[in-house]
């Protein structure tokens, strides 16, 4: 919304419940969208719908922005359908997956309390040059806010990068993957952090601005 104003356009939002999206109706449901955003969440509900949606956005080259769980789902979808990792998943949804491409952070493993125990608040993220993320932020170091327990499993990073999904932003201390993107796609980006916390009326967040711009371009195709 904030970003729409800076492009002098009215963003028309359609809220689609991920539980309602299936392999059969995905085209019909999403064919009028110029951009697809998969929002944050917890747990397994609606995951299949999210994965189908992301596959559609990736294959049909529709601008895609995934936030938090939306980014993690983009990773899972890529693992299942591009890397052909059968039953690849996050250990949040499937503890026994043979390919845990998203896994709980090491420091989270022994926490039993749920109150105020996630990875919270602002952390530094370093951005690789010559990536979409760098084009958006125009800088190599950013601070973004987080709220999560699970992360990209770095054991598989090489597989992903070889197959076309790269990690363009990482935490300099822990190496945690903060941003993933697909360079072969016009606009496909997933972020572990929450850019919406830093978007304000007079200063829309650059990721949303870029996403709206990409959607405008797609609309004209």
């Amino acid at each position: 919304m904030h970003a729409g104003a800076s492009h002098e356009c009215r963003v028309s939002l359609t809220f689609i419940h991920s539980e309602d999206v299936t392999q059969e109706n995905v085209r019909e449901t999403l064919q009028n969208c110029s951009g697809i955003l998969v929002a944050p969440g917890f747990g397994h509900r609606g995951i299949e719908g999210k994965l189908v949606t992301i596959q559609y956005a990736r294959e049909q080259k529709i601008p895609f922005l995934g936030i938090c769980l939306g980014m993690q789902c983009a990773v899972i979808e890529f693992a299942q359908n591009v890397l052909n990792f059968q039953h690849a998943h996050s250990t949040e949804m499937n503890r026994k997956t043979p390919y845990p491409v998203i896994d709980i952070m090491a420091e989270q493993k022994n926490i039993a309390d749920t109150g105020s125990t996630m990875r919270l608040g602002g952390f530094v993220c370093e951005i690789k040059k010559r990536t979409l993320a760098h084009k958006i932020y125009q800088t190599e170091s950013i601070i973004e806010r987080h709220r999560h327990r699970y992360e990209f499993n770095n054991a598989y990073l090489q597989n992903f990068e070889n197959a076309g999904m790269i990690a363009s932003g990482r935490n300099p201390q822990t190496n945690l993957v903060e941003i993933v993107e697909i360079p072969q796609h016009p606009f496909f980006i997933g972020v572990q952090f929450h850019p919406e916390y830093k978007s304000t009326v007079v200063k829309p967040h650059p990721i949303f601005e870029a996403f709206i711009k990409a959607a405008l371009v797609h609309q004209k195709l």
Binding site: H2, S116, M118, L120, G121, G122, I143, R145, H146, R147, H194, Y197, S199, T200, V201
Partner: peptide, 19 residues
């Protein structure tokens, strides 16, 4: 809503910051 210092807060804080 999550603030820069890592506090999990009410959604109204989002309104305050965004306004």
């Amino acid at each position: 809503y999550v603030t820069i210092d890592g506090a999990e807060t009410d959604l109204d804080l989002g309104h305050y910051e965004r306004f």
